[in-house]
Structures are given as C-alpha cells and as structure tokens.
Amino acid sequence: MLVLGIESSCDETGVALVETQGSAVPRLLSHALHSQIAMHQAYGGVVPELASRDHIRRVLPLTQSVLGESGRDLDEVDVVAYTRGPGLAGALLVGAGVACALGVALGKPVLGVHHLEGHLLSPFLSADPPEFPFVALLVSGGHTQLMAVEAVGRYEILGETIDDAAGEAFDKSAKLLGLPYPGGPWLAKLAEQGDSQAFKLPRPLLHSGDLDFSFAGLKTAVLTQARRLGDDLESRKSDLAASTQAAIVEVLLKKSLAALDRTGLGRLVVAGGVGANRSLREQLNAACARRNVRVHYPELALCTDNGAMIAMAAAMRMQAGLEAASARYAFDVKPRWPLDALPLAGAAA
C-alpha cells in the first residue's frame, strides 16, 4: 500500500510517499520539504495568511517531485493522508483541501492525521527505529509532553506543558536577545560560544514532584537579566544564551529520567523540533547510557514538520486497525486538537 502524506500545519510544506507491506514497519520512499523561514523572517514570526498562500503554491510541485523521485505514478497511490490538526486553521485547510481533491480525482480514500502523533511516530522512519513500549519526550513548537507509549494509539500522558513549552522558551528567549526568526536554532548555535554557568536562571517545576512543564518563568528571567546587562548585553549574549539553553535542557533531561523511573521502561523516544538540539541529545545519550536505556530520535532532517511523519502515522494507524481511510471527501480541520482525543486502540475510530 502506498500512502501519500501532506503536511501544512504551519510554516513548512511537506509531501512524502510511504510504502507498507503487511505488518512490517512502513518504508519511506521519498519526501520533499519547503520551509517558509526566509519569507517570515522579515516579520519576526509566522504570518498565517502568507503561510497559507505559500502552501497553495508549493504543495503540488512538491507532490510531483516526490512521485518523480520515487519512480511511482500518482494513480498508484492507495491513500492520501494530510495533517488535520493542530496548527494554523488556514494552513491546515490548504493541505486538507488538496488531499481531498486528490482523493476525489483518484477515487482513493483520505485520512486526516494528528500532527503530534506524526512527530511521536517519526523515529520509526530512522535507520534505528524503536520498539514498543517506550517513554516519549515530545518537544514540538508549543507542545512539551512526556508519554508512556505502549503501541500505536495507546498513549498515556505523564506530564505536559502548563504554559510556555520548551520550543517557545527557546524562541521567545532568542527574540529577547535580538536573534533572528526562528530563534531556537540561533540561540543553540550562539550557546556553543558561551558559558552555561554564567547566569543563574530558574529551572521551572524541576522539583515539583510531577512531570509537567512550565517555561514562562524562565523567559521572564531571561528578560530581567537582559535588562540588567543593559549595554553589556551584546558582549555577554553568548553566555546568556548558553545559560538559557542549559536551564531548558536540564528540565527536559531530569523530567525524562523521572518518567523512565516512574514507568520502569528501558527505552526513550525523543521527537519534535527541539529534539534536534545537540546539547539535549548529548546529555540524554550520556545519562541514558549510564542507566542502560536506549534512546531513539528522528533523523535530523525529519525533526521539523514534514510530510514523511504524516504518511508514516497514517500508515501505522491503519496497520494497527485503529482508523480506516475514508472515501467521504467532506473535511474539517482541528486547529486545537489534544492528542488524547484521538481514537485509541480497541475503541471505534
């Protein structure tokens, strides 16, 4: 079975083709991605209307590119999957509309996919895919969650974001330091030149006794410290960036280890854009190696939003019998869609 996946939830347009054979892990045949970063940089953040229009321009050429690279024809596609939510409403509607139009034209079914489940399952696209069960640290954009994952569709949320997520803490702190959009990668790069112990910044909820996250207080602390530095900020910017990154990483690290302890599981999966952070990977790898815990990540190219994770999630849900693709082409999108609202294993789709 060939699954074509379309991602358009925010500022990346992604298309991919995944093949399934029986119960084996689906195989990525090809994928293509266009990032809108250059377009949004002038505004310091994503402009939803511009994002939607750019998705319209990009999605069909990317689809042609994916088909050409895979050597497959469009009429060979068995299912068209798209990101149904969460995300920007207008951007989601582009992907949903194109997917359903393709479904009608081909006479093939379509399936709306949860964006966060796509990230969660994206490590299965790697050269070293995980095995169930595992603890998952999902750090994507405005979402930071820890979950116990028993199988596809069997997720127990152990802790989640109360206010600002880790990705928001990176991006907002970077903006306070005058770094370009998107700030997280710029802050991480600048941090490599700084002293991570130069400033004593808070580690919110680190000793709360639960597995929830809250990074709003850290952002406020970065703002306060930047104002205190005044004219010296430019010369100390790398130190402040390094200290900020260290605070975020320590919270993610220690909460992840606590989740492993609480569940007794010996495998950790890290997914989402922040999962590409080098400091986080190094510290998680070292700490988990000491505990004899395996750690899995998506390939670096698949940490950000992409069509491959959408095709993969659709394929794995159908393999698990959780959801059937539909030949009804009326669609809606869910800009706000909690992951725990998905049909679960053993429940009706």
Rank of each mutant, 00 (worst) to 15 (best):
V274G: 04
T263R: 07
A289M: 05
L260P: 02
N306V: 13
A287V: 11
R294E: 08
D305F: 08
A276L: 10
R291T: 01
R278C: 06
Y297N: 06
T304N: 07
V274N: 06
G272M: 05
G275K: 09
E282P: 05
R278S: 14
L284F: 06
D261I: 05
L260K: 03
L300V: 14
Y297K: 05
N277E: 12
L265K: 01
A301V: 14
A301D: 15
L284V: 02
R267C: 05
R291S: 00
G266A: 02
G272W: 03
A289K: 09
V274Y: 09
R278F: 01
A259R: 01
R281S: 08
G272E: 08
E299M: 14
C288T: 15
R290G: 00
R262E: 13
A287R: 12
A276P: 06
G272L: 08
Y297H: 08
A271M: 12
L268Y: 02
L302V: 14
D305R: 10
L300F: 13
G275D: 10
G264T: 04
P298D: 12
Q283V: 09
E299T: 14
V274C: 10
T263P: 04
C288D: 08
L260Q: 04
N285I: 02
Q283P: 01
L284R: 01
P298K: 10
R290F: 02
E299R: 15
C288E: 04
G275F: 04
A286N: 11
C288V: 08
C303R: 03
H296I: 06
T304Q: 07
H296N: 13
Q283D: 12
A286L: 14
R294M: 02
A286P: 02
A301I: 12
T263H: 05
A301E: 15
V293W: 00
A301R: 15
